[in-house]
Structures are given as structure tokens and as C-alpha cells.
């Protein structure tokens, strides 16, 4: 027996099967109960996050424009993601190539500096002028490059073989900036890749599990293509050195491996792969940590993308 004071009861008639966002907070109401409310006999659904009620008997919709605009938004979003992938690929290629070339230039400038001190202490300028009396233009360019061209300077190959290489190696071992550069490159490049991965994992909720690895694959292909093209085109200023002299940078490549940019790109891609695989978990943790529940519910797609449901853990 019920008294008149008993509040009218809502009857559960089913549950929402498709996607339907809460009109107030944007939470996806998928899986929520459809209720028959007692006041007007309407079908309603209650948002579990903000408690707002939404009617389900809705008449009418405004024609096809909503769907068309949804297509436009989806297209713009797809273009944005495509542009982001392109930028990520080109940036990755540029960053790894620039870092590898910076290593080479750093080593080459050490080679040039060590060679310059040997060149001046043994008065190689006079030796060159006497050895090649008929090639004064080449001699002048060689002497000028030794003093002024830095990493592109001319270096005596014989000096390099006789002990120059060893002395450069020792100088590099003593150099803190060189160690610092290597350390920073080997930590910051994978870290940058991981951050990119986190961003892509959040931008692409449609990809799950190992399918997310398509991102590092695309970025890697783009970066490798761009780096290889630039690497082949980068020949340096034209030079006319005398016989037995080569560029410092080509000798530096005996210390810094040719494929160092590939190693760096590989590290970046490892970071990127780790980032895309664990990115959404990290973002979910940060969203829970930093955003109030109602605002966090708007980013519920980060949970739904991995087959989970956002639920605010009440204190």
C-alpha cells in the first residue's frame, strides 16, 4: 500500500545503445538507462556526471544541415590530423638530421682546430707554396680554408693518419660540451618523440592498440625520405684544395658514423611508439588529476577510445 506522499517512480524502459552526448557537459550517455518519467509520461535520460535531464522524444530535427556540418567538421579534423602528421614527419626528419650534422660539425671543428695548430706550428703554408709552385690558386684557397672555413676547412690527410685522428679523439673525450650535446640529443630526442606520441594518441581516438603504431610508421617514412634527400644534396661550398687535403667534415665522418641521423631517428621513433601506446593512459591520469569532474567528462572520449567509461571517483 502506498501513501500520497510517496514520490512518483520513474520506470526503466531500456538503455541507450548509440552515442548521445549530454547537452550540458558533453558526457557520452551510451549505456545509461532510458526512463519513463511520471510527470508528463516522457522518455528521459539522466546524465550521471551533471545530473541534467534530457528528453528523448524530440521533434523535429532541422533537416540535413546538422549532418552536413558534422561532415565538414570531420573533414576539417581529418585535414588537421593529416597536417599534424606531415609537420611531425618533417620536424622529426629536420631535428634528427640537424642534430647529426651538428655532431659532425662539432667534431669537424675540433679536427680543423687541431689541424690548424699543427699547420701553423710546422709552417705548412711555406711547405705548400714550395711544393705546388704551379697551383697558386689552389694553395691560396687551401691555406685560407685552414684558417677560416671552420668545419669545411682543408685538412692534411697524412697528418690525420699519422696521429691527428687520435689527438681529436682525445680532445673530444675531454670536451664537456661534446658530452653534453650527445647526452641531450640521446635523451631529448626520444622524449620529444614520446610527447608527440601522447599528442597523436589523444588526437586519434579511432585507433586502438597496435594500430596506433601506424603513426610512428608514417612519421618515420616521411622523416627518412626528407633526411635522405637533404643528406644527398648537402655538399658544402665548392672547394679547390691541393692534393692530399680534404674537408674536415669528411674526416669527421670517420668518427661520427654516417648513419648517426638514422640512429637518432630510430630513437625518436621508439619514443614516439611508446608515446602512442601509453599516451592516452597518461592523458587520462592528467585529466583526472587536473580537471574538475564536469570539465573532465567532456574529454570522456579518451576513455571510450579504449573501451572504458569515464567515472568520477568521488572523494
Amino acid at each position: 500500500m502506498t501513501s500520497d506522499n510517496t514520490p512518483p517512480v520513474e520506470q526503466r524502459t531500456g538503455e541507450i545503445q548509440g552515442d548521445r552526448l549530454c547537452l550540458r557537459c558533453g558526457f557520452n550517455l551510451h549505456g545509461q538507462s532510458i526512463l519513463r518519467e511520471p510527470h508528463y509520461n516522457l522518455l528521459i535520460v539522466r546524465c550521471p556526471e551533471c545530473a541534467s535531464v534530457t528528453g528523448l522524444q524530440e521533434y523535429p530535427t532541422l533537416g540535413r544541415w546538422a549532418r552536413r556540418w558534422a561532415f565538414v567538421f570531420a573533414g576539417v579534423y581529418a585535414l588537421f590530423v593529416f597536417a599534424a602528421l606531415l609537420v611531425a614527419g618533417l620536424t622529426s626528419g629536420a631535428a634528427t638530421l640537424a642534430t647529426a650534422e651538428e655532431f659532425e660539425r662539432e667534431v669537424a671543428s675540433h679536427v680543423a682546430a687541431e689541424h690548424r695548430s699543427w699547420f701553423q706550428s710546422t709552417d705548412q703554408a711555406t711547405v705548400l707554396r714550395n711544393s705546388y709552385p704551379n697551383q697558386q690558386a689552389a694553395v691560396t684557397q687551401t691555406i685560407g680554408s685552414v684558417n677560416n672555413w671552420g668545419s669545411w676547412a682543408a685538412v692534411n690527410e697524412q697528418w690525420w693518419r699519422d696521429g691527428g685522428k687520435q689527438s681529436v679523439r682525445e680532445a673530444l673525450n675531454r670536451s664537456t660540451p661534446a658530452r653534453m650535446a650527445i647526452l641531450l640529443a640521446f635523451t631529448l630526442i626520444p622524449l620529444g618523440g614520446a610527447l608527440m606520441g601522447v599528442a597523436f594518441a589523444s588526437l586519434l581516438p579511432g585507433l586502438r592498440g597496435y594500430r596506433l603504431l601506424v603513426v610512428p610508421l608514417l612519421v618515420g617514412l616521411l622523416a627518412a625520405a626528407m633526411s635522405a634527400a637533404i643528406r644527398m644534396a648537402n655538399m658544402g661550398p665548392p672547394a679547390n684544395f691541393v692534393e692530399g687535403y680534404v674537408r674536415a667534415v669528411s674526416l669527421a665522418r670517420e668518427i661520427v658514423p654516417q648513419a648517426s641521423w638514422m640512429v637518432l631517428l630510430g630513437l625518436l621513433l621508439v619514443g614516439l611508439s611508446v608515446g602512442v601506446l601509453i599516451g592516452r593512459s597518461i592523458v587520462r591520469f592528467l585529466v583526472r588529476l587536473l580537471l574538475p569532474p564536469r570539465t573532465a567528462a567532456a574529454l570522456g572520449y579518451l576513455w571510450e577510445a579504449d573501451g572504458k567509461t569515464y567515472r568520477h571517483r568521488r572523494a
Binding site: L42, G55, L56, T61, L62, W65, A66, W69, A298
Partner: peptide, 19 residues
């Protein structure tokens, strides 16, 4: 009694804005 639907364009725009 019937519920008057919200303009779907506004709903779409609002969900985008909220996210």
C-alpha cells in the same frame, strides 16, 4: 506534452566547444 528539440547545429557546436 512533447519536448522541443534543440537545434542540432547548436548541439554540435556546443559539444565541440565544450571539448
Amino acid at each position: 506534452v512533447c519536448v522541443r528539440a534543440r537545434d542540432p547545429l547548436k548541439v554540435l557546436w556546443r559539444s565541440l566547444r565544450v571539448r
